[in-house]
Each structure stands twice: as structure tokens, then as C-alpha cells.
Computed example of a mutant assay.
Amino acid sequence: MTKPAELDLRVDGGTLRVLRFGEGPRTAVAAHGITASAMSFATVARRMPPDWSLFAPDLRGRGGSSAAPGPYGIDSHARDLCAVAERWGGGAPVALAGQSMGAYVALRAAARHPQLFDRLLLIDGGLPLPVPPDADPDALLDASLGPAIARLSLTYESDEAYVGFFRAHPALGPHWNEDIEAYVRYDITGPPGALRSRAKEDVVRHDGRELLTTAASFAADLAGLSVPARLLYAPLGLMGTEPGMLPEPLVAHWASQAPMLTAESVRDCNHYTILMGAAPARTVADRLTSPLQ
């Protein structure tokens, strides 16, 4: 597997690590999930046409941008995503994608700065999630993302122990491939005997609380979109079982309420393998590089 180029971009307060996949003149920009990194797009990037390049930043507090300071939150990440588009877009609108939390970041970027983008692809995210008004955001985060967040505070004896944690994951282990392994190894940091994820738990929790408590802002973004948008969603969720992250009634509601949005279910995948499984990634690559009408 060809390694992506590692680029640095100065942003407000610090430096953002950006991975470039491909060498084509046409540009796509993509934002990853809440505990993930830009390496989650490697499988998709390899399936894009050769005249494309995919620029994927490690969002603040993750991957090579782990040391980038705040402010965190959706607005800050969206500004960073726009900075990537401005830096490598060649002065023309670019294709924009985001997966999971990254879909909300991409949605905010497209809603606030539509002149930078000619299409928007939301991948298993981007729809306002119904949350009871009296719910505890931290309790909801632990209930929905428990294992993913728990690993951020753990240390591991070796690289192989860290990889083994992921190989035992029911949504990843049965679909293991070189891209998933490269994604996991890219996330490792720390001294021997005390290795850990590069994603910072406090940043993840900050962003997760915002996702859960500001649903109305995402509803406004969807309703006011002027960029053609498509949602791709997985039938299986974080643990590789039903239901998916986005229930069918929620998808149907927003497909009818957001004039610029269409929706498509991607067969035989879960929240992770929609990006890192061979067949689903081909679908994502095709929809990202095909113009939306």
C-alpha cells in the first residue's frame, strides 16, 4: 500500500497534519470520525480515479494534529476543513466528504462557505440525532461510544497489543485488511510499554457533547444547504450489528425535508467498513467523484 504524503497546514493557533492520497489535479477534501484519523480514508482514496487527489486532515486532537490546540468543536473543525480546501483547491470549488462526526463538520463547512465546494457527501453521519432535553451528554456518549472512548485512556504494552485490541472488535476483526491495520498503526503513540491512541479523550468528549446538544444547528444547516448533497449510510452500526447509526425513519425524514439532500443505503457494511471495506469504499469513491445533479 502506497503511503500518503504527510503535509502541514498552519491554522489558527497551531499546525494541522493533512494526508494527501493521490496526485491528480482534481481535489476532494474529507473529514474523519470522532476518535479516528485521516488514515480512515485510505481505502476510498485508492478507488478514486487517477485524476483525483484526496486531502484529509487529522482533526485537532487526533492523529498528527494531536498537539493542535483549541478551540475545538464543530465550528473550529469546519474552519480548518475550509482552510484545507482553500490551500489545495486551486481556486476552484472542490468535492467535500465527511464520515461520522466528520459528516457534521463537512455539513457545517458547506453550509457556511458553499462557494468552496461543488458537492457534499455525508457518510453515515450529518443528520441531527434526537436527544431528550434532560439527557446527560456524557452518559449518552458512554452508552453509544463506550468502547471507542474507553480505549483512549488505556495504555498497551506493544504495537501488537494495540492492534490486537482492534482485531478483536466485532465490527473490524471479521473484515480485517491492510488498510485497517495501517489505520490502527498510524494511531499509536507513546513510549514502549505505555502505548496509547493519539486521539485525546478530553477533545473527543468536548466534540461529542456538542454533537448531542446542538442538533438544531445541524437541522438548520441541512435545510439551508445550497450545495448538492448525498448521504450514504450503513445498515449496521458500531458493533457490526443492526441497527445502523442512522435509523431509516430519520433518513427518510431528512431526505424529504432537506431540498438538496438525497440518500442511499450501502449494502453489507457497518459504520467502519463503509469506509474501510473494499466494496463499500468503491461506492463511496464513485459517489464522491461523480457530480451530483
Rank of each mutant, 00 (worst) to 15 (best):
I149P: 05
I149G: 03
I149M: 14
A150D: 12
R151C: 09
R151N: 02
S153W: 06
S153K: 11
S153G: 13
S153T: 09
L154T: 10
L154I: 03
L154H: 08
T155D: 01
T155L: 01
T155V: 06
Y156W: 15
E157W: 04
S158Y: 05
S158K: 04
S158Q: 11
D159P: 12
E160M: 12
A161G: 14
A161K: 07
Y162E: 10
Y162H: 14
V163S: 06
F166H: 15
F166P: 00
F166G: 10
F166T: 07
R167W: 00
R167C: 09
A168S: 15
A168T: 12
H169G: 05
P170C: 03
P170L: 01
P170Y: 01
P170H: 04
P170G: 04
P170K: 02
P170D: 07
A171C: 04
P174Q: 01
H175Q: 10
H175D: 11
W176P: 02
W176T: 09
N177I: 04
N177F: 05
N177S: 08
N177W: 01
N177L: 01
N177H: 09
E178V: 06
D179G: 11
E181Q: 11
A182S: 12
A182L: 12
Y183S: 03
Y183K: 05
R185G: 08
R185V: 03
D187K: 13
I188C: 10
G190Y: 10
G190Q: 11
P191R: 08
P191D: 13
P191T: 05
P192Q: 08
G193N: 06
G193V: 04
A194E: 12
L195N: 08
L195R: 15
L195G: 10
R196D: 05
R196C: 09
S197L: 07
S197H: 09
R198D: 12
A199F: 02
K200F: 03
K200I: 01
D202K: 07
D202I: 06
V203Y: 01
V204I: 09
R205H: 07
